[in-house]
Each structure stands twice: as C-alpha cells, then as structure tokens.
Design a protein around this nucleic acid. Sequence first.
DNA 1: TCAATACGTCGGAAATATCCGACGCGTCAA
DNA 2: TTGACGCGTCGGATATTTCCGACGTATTGA
Lengths: 105, 105
Amino acid sequence: MPNVDVFSALSNPVRRDILMQLRMGPRAVNDLAQGFDLGRPAVSEHLQVLRKARLVREEPRGRERYYHLDPRPLSEVDDWLKAFTHYWKQRLAALEDVLDEEARK
Amino acid sequence: MPNVDVFSALSNPVRRDILMQLRMGPRAVNDLAQGFDLGRPAVSEHLQVLRKARLVREEPRGRERYYHLDPRPLSEVDDWLKAFTHYWKQRLAALEDVLDEEARK
DNA sequence: TCAATACGTCGGAAATATCCGACGCGTCAA
DNA sequence: TTGACGCGTCGGATATTTCCGACGTATTGA
C-alpha cells in the first residue's frame, strides 16, 4: 500500500470533484457515485487513491461508509505554489528597481 | 495539440522539478537534462507537456532553445485550493460557535 | 563546405491508470 | 433466518504515460 503523491491524486478530475463534494459534508459511496457517469467500483477505486493520499478518511456506519474530507495534505500543494508566489514577488521587486532607476534619470 | 490540464502537468515530479529550476531563470534543454537521470528526449517531451499547459515559453537562441517559466496558469491551482481554505474557515467558525455555546452553559 | 551540436519528434516498449463485471463479506429489515 | 443492500477488491481489457534509440532539421564554427 504505497503512499500516493498528493499531486498525482489531484491529477484526475473525478477525484478533484469528489473532494469538492466532500466539502459539504461526509458522503456514502453510492451517494457519491450517483453524481458521476461511472460505475461504483470506479468511484470506490478513486476513493482508495484519495485514502492513500490521506485526503479522505472513512467512517463506517452500518453497511455504508461515509467518506470525510481531510484537506491537510493539500498544504503540500499550497507550499509548493508559494515558491512561485515568492518568485513573482522577486520579479516585481526587480521590476520596481528598474522603474525607480528610470525615474531617477 | 490538445491543451493539457495544469493539474496533470504538475502530477509528474520531473515536471515540477523543471518548473522549480526555471524560477532561477531560463535554461536550455541540454542544460536542464543534465540535472535528471533521464535522456534528452524524455526531458524534451516533458517540456512539451509543460508547453501545452502554457507553464513554459520557448525562446530560440541560435541552435539552442531557452525555456522560460510562465507561472500564470498556476493560479488555477491556487484558486482551486482556495475553495478548501474557505472550507476550513467555515469549519473553524462552526467550531467557535460550538465552543461559545459550551462556554455559555 | 562539412562535421559537430542542439533540438523536436516518431515508433515502439514497458509501466501505469482507468474502468467494468463478477464475486465475497458484512449489515439490515422482514 | 433470509434475501436485499452497500461496499471493497480482483481479473482483465483498454487507454494513457513515460521513456529510449533513431532520425531529420537547423545552426554553429572550423
């Protein structure tokens, strides 16, 4: 059971959609599968990937399993993106320097 | 030439690494390929994916091609993540309500 | 002009992802 | 207890990804 990379987990639109849906609250598998043009096994396998990426947590309720969102691993993506925010800030700062230089002429 | 999904483009660690490297400035293909345990064609194909996702731009200089970072499409990922930031704020607000309720007893 | 260099892309191999039907296991309700 | 339900997972089919060697094209420098 290899831990799945968060970026890989997000690469599939169905899985991103599932996460979006789970924001509203926990959902059972059949309930989730209704919203997609997919069979239940496929949804179940997408949930397995999300589970291995620790993006969802399962809570058994009788014969159903409610899946809960756990957004914490998303911080890895957010942190990665920050590296490019900083890049932009640097670029902007450099641009300002150039503009200041021009203004001083 | 189908436009590549940004999330898919980011799903590969080599492509993420390439983007990281390009923050420092434009790089030629051979130069980039040195840093990876990969042949040049593989790196070139990764660059093609990044190009289709509009995350890089190419600038021919003689027989070399310098690849530049274009971080703008990353905003799509950032916006997507924001949906979960808001989710968290809602959850925290709900939690505070519960705590206030408890405190009032 | 000619050999070397930098690069993109193609054909094909290998790995991986995605999906379904079928099956089995536990749970529910009669 | 028994039949229906909710679910996970397996086997296998198909699609996609990833990678390489080989080739063609354009550019460079001798």
